[in-house]
Design a protein around this nucleic acid. Sequence first.
DNA 1: TAACAAATTAGAATGGTTCTAAAATCTCTC
DNA 2: GAGAGATTTTAGAACCATTCTAATTTGTTA
Lengths: 147, 147
Amino acid sequence: MRASLAEKGVALTPRRAKLLEVLVASDRHPSVGEIHEEVRRYFPSTSLATIYNTIELLKETGQVLEIEFSGAANRYDGRIPQAHPHLICVECEKIEDLEMVEPSEPLEAISAATGYRLVNRRTDYYGVCPQCQAREGGQQQAPQSLP
Amino acid sequence: MRASLAEKGVALTPRRAKLLEVLVASDRHPSVGEIHEEVRRYFPSTSLATIYNTIELLKETGQVLEIEFSGAANRYDGRIPQAHPHLICVECEKIEDLEMVEPSEPLEAISAATGYRLVNRRTDYYGVCPQCQAREGGQQQAPQSLP
DNA sequence: TAACAAATTAGAATGGTTCTAAAATCTCTC
DNA sequence: GAGAGATTTTAGAACCATTCTAATTTGTTA
């Protein structure tokens, strides 16, 4: 797992190891800011640039899945770095893995039908989680920055 | 179609009408910048803010689908404003509608299984389109800003 | 025509991400 | 070990799509 960094000729420095640990330990799909905060608890001088740089490395070696947002910070999944469906609460911005069935069409079928060389897939379901529904007691929702 | 704006108590001004026309006439899933450019050909003084404001109105009335990106400008689908799968070329940033089967699980099933009140869905397939594959003759790809 | 509301504008502000140049750290050879 | 050269890290500037703000313009109604 961590060996794939070595293959690229880059070192697994203490900061990078800690970042990877934070990423794998969390099921919250943390943002760069949250990762930064956490890594800083062990290496207080760590800069944001290092977090971004390291995540870039991890993306290149397929060890982290990036979930992009336009109005909010990107989020990262270090537990299941392969594309898989997510369940996203537009209220509290919680992101959960969705264990249910994969989208029906396999990449190969779509590739064959369209001529695209497919490299990735994204499937998100947006809604309001049970906790947020309970908190607002059926009323309408507040401003939201995730779709 | 355009009546839904009236119901909100907002006027269908010439700029807004042109924007809607541009949106429906294009199958390219244009960005705000492209829409701006196009509207400007008819109303040269149009500001970016107006494009953003109008798109916000259209989103609220469900007349446009926003496709968000973190590293690039958002794109808009005014032809099929309901959530549907897209095929995205990571090279030339072309976006096509994918007519194939919807992801298997209906929203209701996921809603029932998870307790979420679902409001939206996103399904994207990322790859290299046939034209870009031909252009690069099998070599590796250049920098890209879409996932 | 006057008065009020809605729409539009230009430009500033925001915020996540990327870039840059310099400082710090590591590695390898002698 | 000491020193040269590469890698890593840092702080802060730069970037850019988007949002906000205050002022101007346009439209509507009396």
